[in-house]
Amino acid sequence: QIFVKTLTGKTITLEVEPSDTIENVKAKIQDKEGIPPDQQRLIFAGKQLEDGRTLSDYNIQKESTLHLVL
């Protein structure tokens, strides 16, 4: 699982696999929060994550925290 922290300070927990794409993660966030993926920007280690890449591409491991910017 990974954590996604929103600007409001809320933390969302997501069940993911390293092979999941960023697009996939955004879809999971939409399921939980109702935020359309095209409004979501995910930041990890100061980098904006691209939809077509996977979590493992960015070396995002379990218990990692991503930041969600709208």
Rank of each mutant, 00 (worst) to 15 (best):
K47I: 15
K28H: 05
A27G: 09
K28V: 04
T65M: 10
V4N: 01
K62Y: 15
I12C: 03
S64Y: 08
K26H: 02
L7Y: 15
H67A: 06
N24W: 11
I2H: 01
Q30W: 14
L70I: 13
N59L: 07
E15L: 12
L66G: 02
L66E: 01
L55D: 00
T8A: 12
I12V: 06
L68T: 02
D57V: 03
K5S: 09
G34T: 03
Q48G: 07
L55Y: 01
E17I: 10
L68Q: 02
P18W: 13
L14E: 00
K47A: 11
T21P: 05
K32E: 07
L66P: 02
I35W: 12
P37Y: 11
T54G: 03
S64E: 08
T21Q: 04
I29C: 02
R41N: 11
D57L: 02
Q40I: 13
L42T: 00
T13Y: 08
V25T: 03
Q30I: 03
V16T: 06
G34Q: 06
S56M: 14
P37F: 12
I12S: 02
H67D: 10
Q48M: 13
T11E: 06
K62Q: 15
K5L: 14
I2T: 01
L42Y: 03
E63D: 15
T6M: 15
T54V: 07
L68Y: 02
R53W: 11
L66W: 02
I22R: 00
D38H: 15
N59K: 09
T6L: 15
Q48A: 11
G46H: 06
T13V: 13
E33I: 14
N24D: 13
D31N: 10
L70F: 08
P18E: 09
T8W: 11
I43C: 15
D57S: 12
Y58N: 03
A45C: 15
E23Y: 14
V69S: 09
K10V: 10
D57K: 02
P36A: 10
Q1A: 09
L7D: 12
D38V: 08
L68D: 00
V69H: 12
S56D: 08
D51G: 07
F3N: 06
E23R: 15
I35Y: 13
D57N: 05
T6W: 12
T65L: 10
D51E: 09
D38S: 13
D20P: 01
T13S: 09
K5H: 10
E50D: 09
E17F: 10
H67S: 09
P37W: 11
T11M: 12
P36Q: 07
Q1I: 15
P36L: 07
E17R: 05
Y58K: 01
Q39I: 10
L42N: 00
D20I: 05
K32I: 13
S19P: 03
V16C: 11
P37L: 14
L70D: 10
L42V: 03
V4W: 01
K62V: 14
Q1D: 05
V69F: 12
E23T: 09
V69L: 12
L66D: 01
I60V: 09
D57F: 12
D51R: 04
T54W: 04
T54M: 10
S19Q: 09
L42W: 01
P18Y: 11
L14N: 00
P36Y: 05
L68I: 05
Q39V: 09
S19C: 14
